[in-house]
Design a protein around this nucleic acid. Structure first.
Lengths: 239, 239
DNA sequence: GGGCTTGCTTGATACGCGTCAAAGCAAGAA
DNA sequence: TTCTTGCTTTGACGCGTATCAAGCAAGCCC
């Protein structure tokens, strides 16, 4: 990943979500398209399922969850999103957002009007290609969630979740083994296909085994290797 | 959907997977890019996880499953694919295929070299847009599978599966309530996050209730309304 | 035909996780 | 402070699905 460290008035983290090799002129065109960033308070909706789709959103700071709901009110969290990650790709197909996006803490996003990004993609091939790659990456991510929901046991799911979080945080320069959960036990459970009590119990079990320390939302991974060993077998095979 | 019924030497079902409003000239350009179709025998791999990614594949005739495997050999079927449906979108992100695609019966696909489709998309905006829509639709589909795997009980999963099959078959001009399953009980179970015995038992239960008739792979939906009622509450909310 | 394989059904049993309930704990309001 | 309120932890119990195992039907090869 050749992340460009070009100063950018609109979105300081653009190099994370759009790491394309653009020249100065193309960069300026992109800048012209990216809208002012938007701030959201904790709990606020960025968009709701069924609303008209106009833009993608990249997280600048803060934390989001996306979720779909069934008619009788069951909620499935489909993902947690941190800085540099894109939300709203599911809205392209029908011009309606297909999920809710909710800020888990005070957050900031930059808005990418999709029509204009699409047009720009025609002039800047590497940008077009990058968008295809981003969408494909989302499909790959979803497939690994299916593997998790379809095949893993509670302990394996939670271990995979914690390691995934750890890896994404450290990729952003945060500590890999000492972090704050931004979501509730219930939201973790919804994402992992478990009930909140099971999440809580499983965390306690990991703590008893000395693999981590739980203090409310504060998690310290003491033996990340143990967690890795637990998920080694059931994680997706590398070829 | 404005499905064009233009004759096409390479891919008679192109109107299904590429229903774009193209003029004669654009159509010719597209024809030039789409490769000769490829035939596969039942059980044959179209591609394997980890192989280099070059092309997307659209099913012309027959039936496919795609699946990801964990290191210890657990297999998660991520989808079943029938005529007009596209496979391989997950390969774009890393230039490697992210899943296996296997023919469930003797089948035929047409190959869409991705680089050339990408280039063509720049000249034909509606084609580019259509590709974005296709990828987005795949993300939406994956989200609804997550809802299924995360929240539904065995009966609800199987009912949702049968109704989805029924709907896709009838969209292709086949009978909605009388069809042959192309996959084994084990493959259905793998897709739905259930064991084959549970699939078998649940089918038997549906039959005892007079909702359908099972004769090996031959399914007749007698009371599809009953199945619909079962999934009504737990299916994704419409807005 | 006999004997094999493969896939499906069905039953008995086990166990993991959901459900229900109670209590602890932190943060904020009155 | 004291009373909320929301979130979490923990325990007891029960249900739903997995697991193990046996039997059956269909297809295939010799």
């Amino acid at each position: 990943m050749h992340a460009l460290k070009v100063s950018c008035s609109n979105c300081s983290l653009r190099e994370l979500c759009l790491p394309v090799g653009l020249n100065r002129d193309e960069m300026a065109q992109l800048d012209a398209v990216i809208r002012q960033s938007r701030r959201l308070k904790r709990g606020e909706y960025l968009f709701r399922s069924g609303e008209g789709f106009r833009s993608l959103y990249a997280v600048r700071t803060g934390y989001f969850k996306t979720c779909v709901s069934s008619q009788d009110g069951r909620e499935q969290v489909t993902g947690f999103h941190m800085s540099g990650e894109l939300m709203g790709l599911d809205g392209i197909s029908s011009n309606l957002h297909g999920c809710d996006a909710i800020a888990l803490e005070d957050s900031e996003v930059c808005e990418l009007p999709f029509n204009r990004m699409e047009t720009l993609g025609r002039d800047i091939p590497s940008l077009q290609h990058h968008f295809f790659r981003l969408m494909s990456r989302e499909i790959v991510r979803d497939q690994s969630v299916m593997l998790l929901l379809g095949n893993m046991k509670a302990e394996e799911r939670l271990a995979a979740f914690l390691l995934n979080l750890s890896q994404r945080l450290s990729a952003r320069g945060f500590a890999a083994n000492d972090f704050i959960l931004r979501m509730s036990r219930e939201e973790i459970g919804s994402f992992l296909g478990l009930k909140l009590e099971t999440v809580s119990r499983t965390l306690s079990k990991f703590q008893q085994q000395g693999w981590l320390v739980v203090d409310h939302k504060h998690i310290q991974l003491v033996k990340p290797e143990a967690l890795k060993e637990l998920v080694a077998g059931c994680s997706q095979a590398q070829h």
